[in-house]
């Protein structure tokens, strides 16, 4: 499961923006919203006749597989780096 998301944004003649998002604490803070999203997902699964359990297991696997993702974009003197660990 991903533990930490790191975002680094560098723009010319601006301060380097760098922040770390600890996934679990952020998920806890947004848990009411997550519950609401889960409810919407359940309704969508029922409407489209998809197994709710299968959808959640697959979605969870997808989320867990995000660890190790890294996107690094440099354009001239601007750069964006996103890493998921």
């Amino acid at each position: 499961m991903p533990q930490l998301v790191t975002v680094r944004v560098q723009r010319p003649s601006r301060r380097l923006i760098r922040f770390w998002l600890p996934v679990l604490p952020v998920a806890l803070v947004f848990s009411p919203l997550l519950m609401l999203a889960a409810l919407v997902a359940v309704v969508a699964c029922v409407v489209y006749r998809i197994s709710v359990l299968q959808a959640f297991v697959t979605g969870w696997r997808f989320f867990c597989a995000l660890s190790g993702t890294r996107v690094d974009v440099h354009e001239g003197r601007s750069a964006v780096l996103v890493t998921i660990r």
Binding site: R61, C64, A65, L66, V73, H74, E75, G76
Partner: peptide, 23 residues
């Protein structure tokens, strides 16, 4: 101006995506 994109995606994520797409 030189530009560079470097993306690293775990193959496990692709496998999970395939299972998700099956839904």
């Amino acid at each position: 101006e030189p530009g560079r994109v470097n993306v690293r995606v775990p193959l496990q994520l692709l496998r999970a995506g395939v299972r998700l797409a099956a839904l």
